[in-house]
Design a protein around this nucleic acid. Structure first.
Lengths: 174, 174
DNA sequence: GAGGTTTATCTTGACATCAAGATAAGCGAT
DNA sequence: ATCGCTTATCTTGATGTCAAGATAAACCTC
């Protein structure tokens, strides 16, 4: 049996409220999915604030890291970038425009496909992203301090199970 | 011990790429937090599409459910609503304006505090939210089908641990 | 090799969100 | 009672995002 839980979060209160109001419904799915959504909102806010201190925008970072981890020559197509960042094509065009304007990436025609374009990190972009990424890892590690290594591994595994159906089927927005 | 993992998600590939490019960094935090962010984006997209079929907007739903689960008389202040939905005050003002325009809520001055306002669900709003909520639960249950009850419980508990620091301190945006 | 389909990117217009500040009322200590 | 601080909501202006469609090239089948 379970003893009294010492700490509650907002979702515990939310679920209790629903049980009061709609005892006919099983709101168990909220225990997981509301927490995912709410945690993500908090993370996004943290990220935004932390990057702002450093003169990087959150959306810039998403694009630059995708290029960075692709390895030399740090070059991807817009299509690959939008799949990596889960945004729509119009958003990606806009992001690339602004990154190019600030000199962090350059665009060039794909020599192998005249429909296509390749986006490449500049040296300035490489420097910017490496600094920001190290900083992000530091801050994220703190957010996870409440879980030991084994717990983090379990958590990652359970989340993967939920994520696989999305990542497997190519249902990304175009 | 763990045997070979049969399926990978995008985050597995992302982590492998980082290990290749930056073997000096420990990117373990991404295993959890990137999955949270990505899963949330997928969920948001699902929600948006599913609600669109039904003539409800995702942001409307957030506000209406907060009112619904507060119980009779389905009335909260804008401040309580923005804490429940994790949006800023400007956003909430805008949302209430639009919900009031479509007759799903009404605004009235708080009789106990002349700075304040109370937002109440109308009968039309109540009907709308009850239908949409039942539908949401159906769809969310499917997304969780890959986990058994015990796994869902473990997952919820681990997420709660990460969420508590955010929900405890009143660091919500104003 | 022509026609139709698919893929890749960009354009457009509407819109929701945020940060910062304005307004106004309550509260608390002297 | 008044001054300053806090709380509650709304306003403003900038901006990032999305959905839908336009454009253009590649591919594939007959």
């Amino acid at each position: 049996m379970t003893f009294s839980r010492p700490v509650e979060d907002e979702v515990d209160r939310l679920v209790a409220a629903w049980q009061q109001e709609r005892p006919d419904l099983d709101v168990a799915p909220l225990e997981v999915l509301s927490r995912v959504s709410r945690l993500s909102k908090h993370l996004e806010r943290e990220r935004r604030a932390a990057f702002a201190d450093q003169g990087v925008e959150s959306w810039e970072f998403d694009v630059l890291t995708a290029l960075r981890r692709s390895g030399e020559p740090y070059e991807l197509s817009p299509g690959a970038l939008l799949r990596a960042t889960l945004v729509t094509s119009g958003t990606m065009t806009n992001r690339i425009d602004r990154l190019a304007a600030s000199g962090l990436v350059v665009r060039r025609p794909d020599p192998e496909d005249r429909r296509g374009v390749l986006v490449r990190l500049t040296p300035a972009g490489l420097e910017r992203v490496d600094a920001a990424f190290a900083d992000l890892l530091r801050r994220e590690r703190e957010l996870l301090a409440g879980l030991d290594e084994r717990e983090q591994h379990v958590l990652a595994g359970l989340l993967r199970t939920l994520l696989v159906p999305f990542d497997a089927s190519g249902d990304a927005a175009h």
